[in-house]
């Protein structure tokens, strides 16, 4: 088990969110979409220019930019 930034995850990789280190509007937006510590996610893919990222949660697909994913730490299988 290791923890990496969400930005560095690759397509189809899965993991569990450990921390979200951001406040204010961005923090609120991330949380209200259901991205909170403990949430299991999988990477669906990236946009043509490698940014933004699309994530699969249990029941929905969420997108966010790489620099927004930088605030999210994920525990992944090695």
């Amino acid at each position: 088990m290791s923890t990496i930034l969400l930005r560095h995850m690759v397509k189809h990789q899965r993991g569990t969110i450990v921390t979200i280190n951001v406040t204010g509007e961005l923090g609120r937006r991330i949380r209200e979409m259901g991205l909170i510590p403990g949430t299991e996610i999988a990477i669906c893919g990236r946009a043509p220019l490698n940014d933004p990222i699309a994530l699969r949660l249990q029941d929905s697909t969420i997108t966010l930019r790489n620099n927004e994913a930088d605030h999210i730490l994920v525990q992944v299988e090695p």
Partner: peptide, 8 residues
């Protein structure tokens, strides 16, 4: 920039 975080 306004956060992009959104749902597909």
């Amino acid at each position: 920039p306004t956060p992009f975080v959104m749902e597909l």
